[in-house]
């Protein structure tokens, strides 16, 4: 089986690490060779963060390179646009429409790009966009945006729903579990907005 490559891109503090652990858990249960690569340290201080998830019969490189990602899960619009070159031809983007302006935008040195989702679509890329923040708040906490996005991704990857739920149970801190389970459900059942 060919290796599937996924990227999670977002802003430090958005919980891409937990998201990658959830998927990693599902993939291990499925018996795939799996690699999940994350960068800690400096980038967690509100910087741009990327996590790579790869699975198949045998995975070599832990990283995803330009033109290789089958899916890019963008936790934030500008980050989705930033990593577009990493998407493979025919790949798909799942985008949380939330906007988190970086410091140069906040200070007015530059502007936040307009209509990012539209521009990505007009580059001929398949996009699923959703307001994960709203769904996360509905689930009980804005911090569960990451799990909403996993709900959306679960539609794309297939695998039994119960495996995802087990993974969320295994990876969530007890206080966040109930909210995360709801967030997953909302993400999974959301339709393109």
């Amino acid at each position: 089986m060919k290796t599937t490559s996924i990227m999670f891109v977002g802003v430090g503090g958005q919980g891409t690490l937990l998201a990658s652990r959830i998927v990693g858990h599902v993939l291990l249960e499925q018996g795939f060779d799996t690699k999940v690569s994350e960068v800690h340290g400096m980038s967690q201080r509100g910087g741009s963060v990327t996590t790579y998830v790869k699975y198949g019969d045998k995975v070599h490189s832990p990283i995803v390179d330009t033109g290789e990602a089958d899916y890019i899960v963008g936790f934030e619009q500008m980050e989705a646009a930033r990593w577009l070159p990493y998407l493979a031809k025919g790949g798909k983007m799942l985008i949380n429409t939330q906007k988190l302006p970086p410091m140069p935008v906040i200070t007015g040195a530059t502007q936040y790009n307009q209509d990012i989702v539209g521009k990505i679509e007009s580059a001929g890329v398949g996009v699923v966009s959703l307001d994960a923040l709203e769904l996360a708040e509905k689930a009980g906490s804005p911090r569960s945006v990451n799990v909403v996005m996993m709900g959306s991704l679960s539609r794309e990857l297939g695998f039994e729903e119960k495996l995802w739920i087990e993974a969320i149970r295994a990876c969530s801190p007890p206080v966040a579990l109930e909210c995360n389970l709801k967030a997953f459900e909302f993400g999974r059942n959301s339709i393109t907005v």
Binding site: R45, G47, P102, M103
Partner: peptide, 8 residues
């Protein structure tokens, strides 16, 4: 796309 430097 504007860079997103880490901040405090």
């Amino acid at each position: 796309i504007t860079v997103r430097p880490p901040v405090m």
